[in-house]
Amino acid sequence: MRAFSDAAMAAIEAGTARVVGAVEILCDPPLRVWGGPWEQEIDGHDYIGVGDRGIASTGGAAIGSAAQNVTLELSGVDPTHLELLDADEVRAAPAVLRRLIFDGSGTQLLDVHVYRRGRVDVVSTEETIGGAAIIRAELEGAARGLGRRGGRLRADADQRLVAPDDGAFKHVSYAAEKQLYWGGKPPTSAGQALG
């Protein structure tokens, strides 16, 4: 649940909101950048302005379904931002994606809220000779196997490799389809359900 401040909500309804993103990756040293042109303080930390060189794209997500990854892209990277790749343990480092909402004039910060929390999953670089350098970092949402190690258990056979006597996973393959009804048989007609 995201609670916007009243001023931010009014700006969104009026169509005058200006939206900018900010990324915090808690590797060592921590990396904090945002999409504006100046240095901005958010929750007590200074964020370096990287402008439009940073782009965050997110897939669609629905309530109740699996969380989507967020892909962060930093293109036209200059050497000061390359320290992201030099940082220790950037893989699986906690990352916070924030959204900043400014008023239409771009001078007043109306609201800052956390858009997504996750961990850095895959960091890839793309360098074209004579072209732009791009760093791409995928943030894995909290719902998707935080800090997993190796492969994931999916089947009865996987679990039997770990513990030969553990047969619990044989139910997994059809558990997703199992329908449970609270208190007896499902109603077959509206009259039955209401009456």
């Binding site: 309804e13 005058t16 200006r18 939206v19 900018v20 999409g35 504006g36 402008g51 771009g106």
Partner: peptide, 10 residues
């Protein structure tokens, strides 16, 4: 309703 949102700064 027509919603609008602006990304970043001019």
């Amino acid at each position: 309703t027509i919603g609008a949102v602006t990304a970043g700064f001019p």
